[in-house]
Each structure stands twice: as structure tokens, then as C-alpha cells.
Design a protein around this nucleic acid. Structure first.
Lengths: 341, 341
DNA sequence: CTGAAAGCGCTAACAG
DNA sequence: CTGTTAGCGCTTTCAG
């Protein structure tokens, strides 16, 4: 099976490669190609099973029509959701996405970006990890089009599509307070990531505005150095909470992963939700599906995020002058995990 | 920021582009490049921030060092698992993977493969969907290196890495029978996919060998045309089961998605596992995590599958003569969802 | 040890 | 309306 290129089909039809290129790129009318020759070219291409060589085309046009997507961890539900949304939207714009997971590690993150740039992606959509500010600055220096998703750095001016984490957390906390909870324990990672700090802040401000004093023990910070130790770290933290003087009556988890680990432990301890403890989560984990009660949570609009990320990037790739910082609203999905007290 | 190519660094150092190419590709010794010039080249490349253009390289070498991965549905735990494994192994071989999800649809499947081929992937790793036999045959005709994963077609001789589905199902069924179950209901999709039929067969043979007669009602086939209707379809099927004369005491789900939908319904009906009904599953869903009892299931060796798929493909890409049909063994993971009767 | 030169397959002026 | 031409950035003979 010999391979068919523009040249082969040109010979076959008895025209030049240029004509074939025009026709096969839909510029037949624009370039005023004879209707009949155009048809013969189309036909020959179909018959000979012509397959355009996008690599050659990319080399020439300096556009790979590929966007690189760096997510934090393929195992997050967030990642699969956003990936799906991005892929779908990218396809509409005729972009292929190549994708990689940093596993929340700075070194892997840098490596991925490097691979993508060598492959000459036209742009990047990035869920940044901790301590990757330098990488981001580098991208700016090289004038690589990129947009951050989900997370951003307040100290660096970039395009990003994120959630209004402060507000989402604030709203969710208020919901708990409205239910009568006065002793809410917020469970977050120990992290430097801004979006997670914003969730802390939303929590604290809501308490304050309701005249509830913030007790030190009511913010649990779970170490996150090792993905395999989350469960045991959550256990340790929750044990501490149970032993504290404060009689906590609600748990608010800052991520779905934390929530699912926390709920697992509650199951183990046979502590009933919401009878003994109300539970609130950020985002939904697949694991909630089979929990005995539906979990009230703050839902991120993944599809919207993905869509806007792609659209922003596409604009950027045409014209480096776009500047877009988007904070989307979360939806509070009411389940049965918070009781009235 | 002007871009740096081989030529630029060649000029900078005062040598030819060829030399630079040799050095930067690690052929410095092989091509007997002067040690000192080599160093100057390396240095210049670093200083000027040289970034190889893989597109140009690919055009020349006719190797994209990319493999295309087609999974069935990004939302399956199987998909993320296998993707991760494949990525990891591919990186060891210096391949990038570009990836797409067919969403179990034949048209999307064909389209994905087409995109990948136009991008000149060096090979494909494919989880085929129903009725895609023609696509597969086409790949063979074009002599595109590919390996099937998870699923294969008995009528087409291809390379594949799959599970010994018959045996896994047979073993799991025997486990239930050993526990004293005589009225087991097997829940599978209504499908033409061979690997799922093998699971049916394993179930039936196990029954037969144990002298349990196969009653028609004990195989539930769930329509799978619409991913959004699975839950209601599972409900309908299970209702039928509850109404049948046979007093079923065990449910064996052929996939984790079916199992998690089934368990959800059991929750809704407040039917206790394993007290009222024992439950067995194929593979584990994230949703099992928060179910009140751990689910006994047949576990596929995803990492191994991914690894072997990549390795087989790599061999294939060097030498079209490889022929490998692998059936891996599942592990039966014992939980608390099956009681002794 | 090093350089010149010929493309890979396609696009896009430009010239007829 | 159509063909010629000059590369895109890199690899790789083949000569020196």
C-alpha cells in the first residue's frame, strides 16, 4: 500500500499539487478553481484514499492545531469532567487536545509543559500545581498562549477561568449557619494554593458576619504531601476534632476527595450523617453515589469552565491581546446531609 | 523573542547545522564530533534556550513518536486507570499519547481514529466499541500498528491484551456457589460485545458444572443505548427480578457501572447487603468506597494491561510481525457483600 | 572531524 | 483558472 500524497493525486488527475491543495482545503471557489477539475480532484482523493499529512501542514503553517491540557490528577472527578468539556469544545474549533496529568507535582508539571512545547502545541490550558509560579512566568516570557483553569495565582496576572471560591464557600457556610449550626469544622488541605485559601476565607468571613467566633480547632488542615496517606491524615485530623472541647455538629469539606475520605471514616466510626454530624462538601465525588444520604455540596460548573477556557484560548491564539479573568458561580446542591439544629 | 532553530545556534557557534543536530541528538560520539565543539554547541543551545521542533523532525523521520489512545468512555474507572497506566509506560518509551473517548459510539470512534491517523500517530491502542469491526479491518488493511485492549473480536485476528473474562466470571460465580447460593441473578448489558458474552458464558458454565439449572430469568440484560437511562433501566430489570417466582439470593453484576446503579437501587429499596442479597461485581467503582459494606469483586489488572499494551505496540511499530493475544487473570477481591447461606 | 545539499509533504505567493 | 517556486526546521547521506 503505497502512500498517497498531494503529488500522487496531482499526477493522477493531471494537475499541479497547488490545485489539489486548494481544492482539498476548501479554497476551491476562493481560488476560482474550475468546477469540473475540482470535482475530479475530490474524486481522486477519495478513490486513492488520500490522508492529509498534518505534520507537513503544521510545519508549513506553524500551527499544530493542538492544545496541551495539563490537569492536576486524572483521578479527580474534576479532571475527567473538565477534560471532557475541553475536548468537546476544542473539537468544535477543530483542535485536538493532548493531555497530561501532573499528579500535583511541580517537576512533572514542568516536564509536561516542556513536552507540549516541543510538540509545538498552539496553546495550553493549565490547572497549575503548588509552586509552579516560575513555570507560568516562563510561559508569559515566551509569549505562549495559555489559560489557567480552576486555580490561579493572585500575584501573577494571567488569563484564568476559575470559581468564585470565596463566595461559594461563604454561601455554603451560611447555609449551615442558617440551619442552626454554630460549631462547624472546616476541613481543608494544608496548602499554599490560593483557591483553597479563598475557601478558608469564605468560611471565616461567614462565621464572623454571623457573630460566631472562630475557634482555632475549627479549621483542620490535612497534609497533602503523599496522595496515599490522605485517608490516614484525615483520620488523624478528625480524631483530633472529636477530642476537642468544642462540640462540633457540622463538617465542611473543602474538596470532594477530603469529603469522601471523611465520610469513609464516619462510616467506620458508625457516626450517622446528618443525625450526629451534618456534612457539606465542595464538589461531588463519585463515591457519594452510594452513601446512605445525599451530600449537600457546592457544585462547580465544569462544562462552562471548560468551554470558556477553550474559547478564551482560541481568542488568545489568534490575538495575544485578550485579557480575561473569570470567576464563575457555584451552585449549592441541597442534599440530606445537613440537619436543622 | 525570536525563535531559535538549529541554524541559529549553528551560526552562533560557527559550525554547520548538521553538527548541531548530531550533538543535540546524542550522536556526538558516534559521529566523532570534537569534544570541545560539542560542548560549545550544548552550551549555546542551553543559553539560547533552544527548543527542538518536533514537527519538523517528525516530517523528516516519518515518526511522530505519538500513540493514539481510544477509550470507550472517560467516565469509566477502567478508562482513567488504563489511561494512566498507558501514559506512564509510553513515557518510558518516549512516546506521547494523544487520547480520545468514543463514548461507546461507532461514529465518534471512526472519527477519532481518523483524526489520529491524520496526525500521523505511530500506532494506536484501542478499546473498541460495538460494531466497529470495519474500522478495525481497515486499520489492518492500511497496516497501521495497533493493539486492542479490554475487548476483542473473536472473528478478527488482531493483537490484543484483554482479560480472561470467561474464567473471571466462572471463578466469581463459583465463589458465590461455594457460599451456598443457588439462585444467582447475573446482570449484564444487552450487547454484542464478545467480552461481555464471555462473562455470561462463565456464569452459565459455572452453574451447569454445579448442577444448578439455568433459569431464563436469572440473566438480566440491560439496554445500553442511552448512557443516561442506565439507572432507570437497571431499576426496571431489577423490579422484574423481584417479581419473578425465583427467590434470588445473590446478584452478580457484569460491570462496575451496573453494580453501582444496582446498589443505588438497593439502597433506595432499603434492601440490605448481604443480609437479604449477596452482591458480586466485576471491577470496582469509586462509588463502592462509601457503600456500607465492601463489595466482593473481580479485579482487572489495569496496570499490567496498559503496560503490555504499550510494550506490544512498541514492538509492533518496529516490526509489523509481532502477534500477541494476551488474556490476563483477574483477582477475586473478597469483601463483605456475600454471605454464607 | 565537519559541511553542503537534498529533501520530508504541504502551503502560499507570484507569475502566467 | 493553473503551474512554478520557495521554503517550514530538521535529518542524513555523501564528500571532503
Amino acid at each position: 500500500m503505497k502512500k498517497i500524497g498531494l503529488k500522487e493525486i496531482a499526477e493522477h488527475v493531471g494537475v499541479s499539487a497547488a490545485l489539489v491543495s486548494y481544492v482539498l482545503n476548501g479554497q476551491a471557489v476562493e481560488k476560482q478553481v474550475n468546477k469540473e477539475t475540482a470535482e475530479r480532484i475530490e474524486l481522486a482523493a477519495a478513490q486513492l484514499n488520500y490522508r492529509p499529512n498534518n505534520i507537513a501542514r503544521s510545519l508549513k503553517t506553524k500551527k499544530s492545531h493542538t492544545i496541551g491540557l495539563v490537569v492536576a490528577d486524572i483521578n479527580y472527578r474534576f479532571s475527567t469532567g473538565i477534560t471532557r468539556a475541553i475536548e468537546e469544545e476544542a473539537k468544535k474549533h477543530n483542535y485536538t487536545v493532548i493531555y497530561g496529568s501532573s499528579n500535583e507535582r511541580t517537576d512533572k508539571f514542568a516536564e509536561l509543559i516542556n513536552v507540549f512545547l516541543n510538540r509545538r502545541v498552539d496553546g495550553l490550558i493549565i490547572v497549575p500545581v503548588e509552586n509552579c509560579e516560575n513555570q507560568i512566568l516562563l510561559l508569559q516570557r515566551y509569549e505562549i498562549p495559555f489559560v489557567l483553569v480552576d486555580r490561579n495565582f493572585p500575584g501573577i496576572k494571567t488569563n484564568y477561568i476559575a470559581l468564585d471560591n470565596f463566595k461559594a464557600s461563604y454561601t455554603a457556610t451560611n447555609y449551615l449557619i442558617d440551619k442552626g449550626h454554630k460549631n462547624i469544622c472546616f476541613v481543608n488541605y494544608e496548602t499554599t494554593l490560593y483557591h483553597l485559601h479563598e475557601r478558608n476565607r469564605g468560611f471565616k468571613v461567614a462565621l464572623k458576619e454571623n457573630g460566631i467566633k472562630y475557634k482555632p480547632g475549627c479549621l483542620l488542615e490535612i497534609p497533602n504531601d503523599n496522595r496515599d496517606e490522605i485517608y490516614s491524615n484525615v483520620k488523624i485530623a478528625m480524631d483530633k476534632m472529636f477530642k476537642s472541647k468544642t462540640p462540633f455538629d457540622a463538617l465542611f469539606f473543602a474538596t470532594d476527595t477530603l469529603a469522601s475520605n471523611g465520610l469513609k471514616y464516619l462510616n467506620e466510626l458508625n457516626i450517622k450523617v446528618p443525625d450526629v454530624l451534618s456534612v457539606m462538601s465542595f464538589d461531588q465525588s463519585d463515591a457519594f453515589e452510594l452513601f446512605y444520604c445525599s451530600i449537600t455540596h457546592s457544585r462547580q460548573p465544569l462544562e462552562e469552565m471548560g468551554k470558556q477556557a477553550v474559547n478564551t484560548l482560541v481568542e488568545l491564539m489568534d490575538n495575544m491581546k485578550v485579557s480575561k479573568q473569570v470567576s464563575l458561580e457555584a451552585d449549592l446542591i441541597i442534599g440530606q446531609s445537613c440537619k436543622e439544629v
